[in-house]
Nucleic acid binder design. Structure first.
Lengths: 232, 232
DNA sequence: TGAAAACTGGGTACAGCGTACCCTGTTTCC
DNA sequence: GGAAACAGGGTACGCTGTACCCAGTTTTCA
């Protein structure tokens, strides 16, 4: 499976890229659980084991998938203004949207971060947004790492809720209603005043995921901005 | 599998709690991939299918596991001072440590958040840390949600790196050295100045995970504190 | 005091998974 | 033309979750 272009022998019928594309299509539409080698083979019309001429393992395939979608994580150049805060914010928003488009990314087996060239490019461009602010490289990595951690954590929770909704066919409120007797028995004990308030009061404001995402992101940016060395 | 105490028939040989405990032990030590129903059955010395008298599915078991470790997520009462900022910070630190103790939590299949009684208790107590600050319930949920997102995202990245290190047997620097020829070919293009700086400069300061965690956490707390209504 | 009901543990079996291994056919080089 | 290097793909193995069934045990009721 090794070389991209074999020196001898028949021309390969497929390509790593085509295989990766098919795998992404399946994972996007049906989730990572539905992604199997047999399924990918069926999708591109090859034998199952033939895939191993192109990738060395399923994990390798997932690495390729991750790298393939990496370009979606950087906002279009028209959105990059040169103002670090606006740009980092746009990056975070763009990252969230890309992760929502490819929910399997949050559950993909942990591999080394900067696996492929696209990810290196993404890291380069992302770091570029906070370059020239008088930060050391470690400080820059800390800033971008904190942003990435928040975005990742938020989207993971968002996707977990979406998946639960899909699986049970109920949204949070419907699910709570179905658990009413259990919840009410808790409330009657009087030991859960805040949980009780949550059940009755939550959802009056800021229920839009976009706004909830923005809240934490802007607080984090506020905090980062306050520690930045003064602009020259 | 339904009732905890059967009305008729023989006394159950095990208990849901014992089963859950065994499963947690396996998952802590060998990861979620090593957790199979057959493995759990072998651990407690029962037949595989007997487990289904106690849990309705493997996902159900994982739900029980999550709920069982929930108490570890709240700091001991001696650490709760009444100062919201110190307390939320202690909660975040405690959450991180608990997640590091149980790495499978970050990959456990997405189920409804507040599944069991321990998780409800945790939510109640966590919300209690930001009660009385003049925040609406939705604002409180936003604050705690942002903190949880950051902690979750940070620990996920931390565990992913740890797992990659364990799998390849190399830490980040060793791995980079092994990829040296690829990396150097990138650097020679001159298109990756910041990535290049990262390779040469990173790690001079703040490489301690605890400090990196604290950096983002404190920035987030800074930002949140700034939006809080003035204390009475 | 049986008989029936409700439960227990556990074995068998099935569909699906990743992938090691092997065979056959095609292309290219010497 | 022979050999080497490759292509595609079939078979098979050990693993997974779990549906289903059966035999044994305890309790309840006539």
């Amino acid at each position: 499976m090794r070389p991209e272009q074999p020196a001898r022998g028949p021309r390969p019928s497929f390509s790593r890229a085509r295989l990766t594309e098919a795998a992404i299509r399946i994972a996007d539409a049906e989730g990572l659980d539905a992604l199997s080698m047999r399924r990918v083979a069926a999708e591109i019309g090859s034998g199952t084991m033939s895939l191993y001429r192109y990738v060395s393992s399923k994990d390798d395939l997932i690495d390729l998938m991750s790298d393939a979608v990496a370009p979606e994580f950087f906002p279009p150049s028209t959105d990059v203004t040169g103002d670090w805060r606006a740009d980092v914010r746009a990056l975070a928003v763009c990252n969230r949207q890309a992760m929502l488009r490819h929910p399997w990314l949050t559950k993909s087996p942990a591999t080394r971060q900067s696996a492929g060239p696209n990810r290196v490019r993404l890291m380069e461009d992302s770091l570029g947004l906070v370059d020239g602010l008088g930060l050391s490289m470690d400080a820059m990595l800390n800033v971008m790492g904190a942003i990435a951690a928040y975005v990742n954590g938020f989207v993971s929770a968002e996707l977990a809720e979406a998946e639960a909704r899909r699986r049970t066919g109920m949204d949070l409120m419907q699910w709570m209603a179905s658990q009413a007797s259990f919840i009410e028995s808790l409330l009657r004990t009087g030991d859960y005043p805040l949980f009780s308030r949550m059940v009755t009061e939550a959802g009056r404001e800021l229920t839009d995921p976009d706004e909830r995402f923005a809240f934490g992101l802007d607080r984090l940016l506020d905090g980062i901005a306050a520690t930045l060395p003064p602009a020259p």
